[in-house]
Simulated assay, not measured.
Amino acid sequence: MEKISGRVIQIYGNLVSFLRKCIFCVLSAGSVPNHIAFIMDGNRRFAKRLNLMDGAGHKVGYSALMSMLRYCYEFGVRYVTIYAFSIDNFKRSPEEVQSLMDLMLEKIEGLIKEESIVNHYGVRVYFSGNLKLLSEPVRLAAERAMLATAKNSRAVLSICVAYTSTNEIVHAVQESFEEKWDEITVLNSSGAGYGLISLGGNEQDEGDHLIKLTDIEKHMYMAVAPDPDIIIRTSGETRLSNFLLWQSAHCYLYSPQVLWPEIGLRQFLCAILNFQRLRFYLDKKKKQL
C-alpha cells in the first residue's frame, strides 16, 4: 500500500511540475525579470497563529523559500536576493537571535551539499552585508558556501545577512573615500600632485579624484547584482524596512497579504503578470532620469 501511495504522489508531483513549466513557457513570451528580491515577512506571526513552537515559523518559511527559488530558476530569473537577517534583528532577545543563527548555520551547510537546489540549478551564492557582525561559525559557513559555489554560473543568489541599506551606503562611501585617498597618497609620494576628493555624481566635475556615483555603487554590498526588477514582501506590508533602498528606485513592489510561509505559485505568478503589465511604464520612468 505504501508503494502505491508513494507512486501516486510521485506521479502527481511530476504532473504539477509539468504544468508549472508549461505556464512558465507561456509567460516567458513576455518580459522575464532579471532580478527578483524577497522580504520574507511573517514567519513569527505564522507560528503564533498556529500555536507553533518558537522558531517553527522560520523552518516552514525555509521550505517556502526553496519553492520560490525553484520557481525563479525554472522561469529563467538570473538574480534572486533574499533579506535573511537585518542588523536591527540583533536587537531581538538573545534566545531568538541564537535560534536564528543556529537555523542559518544548518541551512547554509545544506547549500554546500551536492544535491542542494543551488547546485541543481548552477547557482552561485553570495552573502551580502556586514559579515563581521555574525558569529564565527556562521561567518565561516557563509565563506565556505561562497567558495563551494564559486564555479556555478547559471544564476546568482544573494543572501542579505547582518544587512541594512543605510549600513551598506555608509560602507560604500567609506570604501570609496579610502580608495581615492590611497590614490592621492601614491601620487603625492611620486611627486605627481593630487586631485580633489568630494562627493559628486556629475561625471564632468573638475578634479581627478572625485568620488562619483559609480565609485559608490562599485563598493556596495549588492554590487554583485543589477538593480531588482521586482521586490516581493509578504504579509501585505509595503515598507522596504531598510532593504535595497539605493537599488529600488524604479522596481515594482508586490505585497501579497499572505504570510511568508504561506506564499506559493499563485503569488509568484501574480507578481510576474503585474510586472509584465507595468514593464513599459517602469522602463519609461528609468529613461527619464
Results as ranks from 00 to 15, higher is better:
residue 2 E to Q: 13
residue 3 K to L: 11
residue 5 S to V: 09
residue 6 G to F: 10
residue 7 R to N: 11
residue 7 R to H: 10
residue 8 V to K: 10
residue 9 I to M: 12
residue 11 I to P: 05
residue 13 G to F: 00
residue 19 L to R: 06
residue 22 C to R: 12
residue 23 I to M: 13
residue 25 C to W: 12
residue 26 V to P: 02
residue 29 A to L: 15
residue 30 G to I: 00
residue 32 V to P: 01
residue 32 V to E: 00
residue 32 V to H: 00
residue 33 P to K: 08
residue 34 N to G: 13
residue 35 H to D: 08
residue 35 H to T: 07
residue 35 H to S: 08
residue 36 I to K: 11
residue 37 A to N: 09
residue 38 F to M: 07
residue 39 I to G: 00
residue 39 I to L: 11
residue 42 G to Q: 08
residue 45 R to H: 06
residue 46 F to G: 01
residue 47 A to W: 00
residue 52 L to D: 00
residue 52 L to G: 03
residue 53 M to F: 12
residue 54 D to M: 12
residue 55 G to M: 05
residue 57 G to Q: 04
residue 58 H to M: 04
residue 58 H to K: 03
residue 64 A to L: 09
residue 64 A to V: 05
residue 66 M to R: 15
residue 66 M to I: 12
residue 67 S to L: 15
residue 68 M to Y: 14
residue 68 M to W: 08
residue 69 L to K: 08
residue 70 R to M: 06
residue 70 R to D: 13
residue 73 Y to A: 05
residue 73 Y to D: 04
residue 73 Y to S: 05
residue 76 G to M: 02
residue 76 G to D: 03
residue 78 R to D: 02
residue 78 R to I: 01
residue 79 Y to W: 11
residue 82 I to M: 10
residue 82 I to C: 09
residue 83 Y to L: 04
residue 88 D to R: 10
residue 90 F to G: 06
residue 92 R to G: 02
residue 97 V to M: 03
residue 97 V to K: 03
residue 98 Q to D: 06
residue 99 S to P: 00
residue 100 L to Y: 01
residue 103 L to P: 04
residue 105 L to A: 09
residue 107 K to E: 13
residue 116 S to D: 10
residue 120 H to N: 11
residue 121 Y to L: 06
residue 122 G to P: 07
residue 123 V to M: 09
residue 124 R to L: 05
residue 124 R to N: 12
residue 125 V to G: 03
residue 130 N to Q: 14
